[in-house]
Amino acid sequence: MSEVHVYGVVPASATPELAEQGHRLIAHRDVAALVSEADRDGLRAASVLRAYWRVLEQAAAVTTVLPVRFGTVMTGDQAVVTEFLEPAHDELAERLKEMAGKVQLTVKGFYEQDALMTGVVERSPTIARLREQVRGLPEAAGYYKRIELGQLVAAEVERERERDAHGILERLRPLALEARLEPPSTPDSAVHAAFLVDGKRVDEFSGAVAALGRELTGRIRLRFLGPLPPYSFSGEDATAGARAWA
């Protein structure tokens, strides 16, 4: 039997709509796994990632989806049932029920570069002094000093990020069912926060993000993404849970 790429878990009752979208499902009692054949020859990570994102996005438009961690491949349909859907059935069924009608909204913020750097230099006399020294040195001679300067700046940016990320999280938390900070993934990241929001409050939440974005103009540029399947809320103890399932 050929290997399958497991994208997510959906209620088995949603099978007709999903089949209409061309997705393949492996159902077991009232839960089903959304899968595709895993073509491991000629596999390109980027295209697999695109497919994963698209399949879950389409499915989330018609039903509740619990994403399974990206890149999960199992040995075949039989394994999906006996090693995953059957042992984890109760937990999956319960989480699907919990997530019904809820969506993830993600807020990312990026520092405006000039404002961030100017603030860093103004706040730290050490950085300002080192900056002056480095400016006077030829490129090769100043290499280690520049790394030192960069490290100090990075630390200062980290402090700034800590403040801003928590500030933004707390500001939006009252409108969400759950809220979570994700680690920054770029050096100019100010915040990356995921919110689990009642589907009926998406507009209200969007309004709050827009207002916040206006306040932060000139300092932090916000990106607002969603509605998304609950990537950050499918299983906070997923790893521990998985061990229990095995």
Partner: peptide, 20 residues
């Protein structure tokens, strides 16, 4: 948004995906 998120299926019963 995607990486390291979502349900984890135990390492003993899944096959790793090369390149990811």
């Amino acid at each position: 948004i995607i990486l390291d998120k979502g349900l984890v299926i135990d390492a003993y019963v899944r096959v790793s995906l090369i390149g990811i």
